[in-house]
Design a protein around this nucleic acid. Sequence first.
DNA 1: CTGAAAGCGCTTACAG
DNA 2: CTGAAAGCGCTTACAG
Lengths: 338, 338
Amino acid sequence: MTKRPTMSDVARVAGVHKATASRALNPLTSGQVNPATARRVLAAARQLGYTPNATARSLRTSRTYTVGVLIPDLTNPLFPPIVRGIENVLFPRGYTALVANTDNDPEREAAHFEALLGRQADGFILATGRREHPLLAAAHERGISAVLVNRGTDDAFYPLVTGDDPAGMTAAVAHLVALGHHRLVHLAGPATLSTGFRRAQAFRHAVAAHDLDGPRIIECAGYTADAGERAMAALLAEAGAPPTAVVGGNDLIALGALRAIRAAGLRCPEDVSLTGFNDMPFLDELRPALTSVHVPTHELGVEAARLLLEQIEGAPAVAKTISLPLRLVVRESTAPPS
Amino acid sequence: MTKRPTMSDVARVAGVHKATASRALNPLTSGQVNPATARRVLAAARQLGYTPNATARSLRTSRTYTVGVLIPDLTNPLFPPIVRGIENVLFPRGYTALVANTDNDPEREAAHFEALLGRQADGFILATGRREHPLLAAAHERGISAVLVNRGTDDAFYPLVTGDDPAGMTAAVAHLVALGHHRLVHLAGPATLSTGFRRAQAFRHAVAAHDLDGPRIIECAGYTADAGERAMAALLAEAGAPPTAVVGGNDLIALGALRAIRAAGLRCPEDVSLTGFNDMPFLDELRPALTSVHVPTHELGVEAARLLLEQIEGAPAVAKTISLPLRLVVRESTAPPS
DNA sequence: CTGAAAGCGCTTACAG
DNA sequence: CTGAAAGCGCTTACAG
């Protein structure tokens, strides 16, 4: 590998001092240098194929233009659009996202967090919120810039960008009630996650508002199809009439529930109506196509990245919550009870 | 933000020179220092909460332990498992992946490539191969380490890790022929991509081997559901009997074809059998569940990362191809012609 | 086994 | 408008 040219090389070719070359090459300081000189420097840089060494610059300026993005799992379809939203904001402004998967394991998360701190990330976007999140208090104390996306925490140190879960859940329940359902069950996500907790709470309120009898909330072991399938299978194995409508804590749980419904010889939506949450890709292609609450994931990422950049550029870390509107997308998996 | 401790701080607390602290802190050189001294340094580091500044180290060693990963689009379900496979190899070895989306736009790709070079990435993994790929010749000339994954290029400068497409295509065609199909159509991916080209070629061979009449290959505008839908709709609008079996270039094309089949009032698999390629997640949940050729995406990523690390550590960039075995997963979308 | 020094490639106050 | 110098936080030959 032939050595890459440095700023000194550019300066030599242009016949100036490297300080002048530095000023000429940086748009923010190029006004300080004689236009003719600047042109010579630019020409020399182009001729040599010069690219600034970001590592050296970072060491000097203690800014890496790098953002750590912590997500549970990239293969969960909820997260890729969030990450893309983040990148679409960061890249044009010269930032690079360092994406790390935590698999919901606090130790893995801490290890990644440390590694990213070692790489001098300018800030963090966390989609891994648990209601208890010790990392955040420590980060806040150290003056680290961060934004939460999708999931929040009980202790609010940082801004949160999230969907308006209560409104979404209210819409889902109202839809089922309007269809004529009375026996609703919510297959909830883990109560240790803010979304699981908040959606369950909203479900409880919505059901109470409609004055229904004995609504049930069953907490799944995780936001996965397998957890949803197990919970639904256990429910259907109970004595007594099954629910006529099931509200999934997310789409994966709903997908698992659908498997269990079929395995029990029941039909959706004829015997059991079913809703998801998040409106992940390809729900349209399912049969029955799944009714779900659409979450604007790309915008979630966009907003989170914007807030983070503001913070990095000096805005204080205010623990405000930005709720983006959600809307129910009605498809084939919900129908009147028969 | 209270300033983070540096190696000099650690050295001062431990009562040694920073060179000694550096040696003690690095596992590779800690053997050079007195065990008792080393312990003092480690204790001081822990006490201060010291994390080495990777930027400074990189500037000194000209190694960033950073790998640029270029993919077309993270929201295409093919890529997240590849990226996770890559990260699962890189992270334990101290590397971080910088993932960039190119949207199949050569200019965007070049911009990201330049940015990653500026960040001094130690190597690259490209899943963005086009058959013509000028970036690669230039990179090879500059002595840059790289590995291709999934898609190759016509000019082979770098190792390629890919699925055994010909075998997968042969299996799909053999399955359809065994079911009794004669009129097969292949809805191919773009011929400018190695996978599109190679799969179409394999289709042609497989069909010839079975001595079928007039097999057709229709090239879609992209590896997307919309492109598949348009191609299939155009095909069904033609005069004459439609094919009894359609082989999709990937799952998204197949999904689009399924929409067009339904829109035309036909049923799958009763009227038209359909196969996909890649076996992306959730195909099982479709009705009909889609028969597809399974590609071990996670392993693709794992192998690519391994090869890249070898290269970074000094192995020459041999243009070998590693083909991972594929297997046909038969589900509900294929049946005998009626 | 440890220290003193140089230097990686930049940026930026300070002079002039 | 330009240059000379210092320094970001490390690592590593070189002495001792």
